[in-house]
Amino acid sequence: IKNKHKQLAHFKIIGWDFAIDKDENPVFIEYNLCPGQNQITCGPTFGDLTERVLDEFFVKKTLKYAQN
């Protein structure tokens, strides 16, 4: 997934959905470019870490790249 994620690097957060088959192998189902929609039914995506993640990925990283 890390390699696939790099191919979609212009998206800051991607939700990767997997299942486990009967032989305990991961099976890719889909990726979601707007995983935040889960919050409507499941609450904050990152739980107690939500503010920290948002600050790191949407504030610090954005400012870092804007300054370069």
Rank of each mutant, 00 (worst) to 15 (best):
D23L: 10
K22A: 13
I14V: 10
G47T: 02
D17M: 01
I13K: 03
K22H: 08
K61Q: 12
Q37V: 14
L49N: 15
L49V: 03
T45Y: 10
T50M: 13
N38C: 15
I13A: 00
T62P: 01
N25M: 09
I20S: 01
F57E: 14
E51A: 15
I20E: 04
N32E: 08
K2W: 09
L49W: 08
G15N: 02
G43V: 02
Q7F: 03
K22L: 10
Q37C: 15
K12V: 09
P35S: 11
T50L: 05
K12R: 13
C34E: 11
I40D: 10
K2N: 07
E30R: 06
Y65Q: 09
L54Y: 08
A19R: 11
P35I: 03
T62K: 08
V27R: 11
Q39S: 14
L49A: 13
I29H: 09
E56Q: 08
K61G: 00
F28N: 08
F46Y: 02
V27A: 03
H10F: 04
K22N: 13
K64M: 06
P35K: 09
I29P: 02
T62H: 08
G43A: 06
L33I: 14
Q37L: 13
D17Y: 05
P35C: 10
T41G: 10
D21P: 05
E51R: 10
C42P: 01
L33M: 14
K2T: 03
K12M: 11
F46W: 08
T45Q: 06
G36L: 07
K61T: 08
F57M: 12
C34T: 12
E30N: 14
I14E: 01
Q67Y: 08
G36K: 02
K4H: 09
L49H: 14
R52L: 07
I29W: 04
I29R: 07
D21I: 02
D17W: 04
A9R: 05
R52V: 03
K4Q: 09
Y65N: 11
V53P: 00
L63E: 08
Q37M: 15
A19V: 06
D23A: 12
F57W: 14
G43L: 04
Y65F: 11
N68R: 14
I1H: 14
T62D: 05
G47E: 04
I13D: 03
Q67E: 11
N25G: 01
V27E: 00
G15Y: 01
N25T: 03
F57Q: 12
R52T: 05
K6N: 12
W16I: 00
E24L: 13
K60P: 03
V59C: 05
D55A: 10
G15F: 00
L8K: 02
C34I: 07
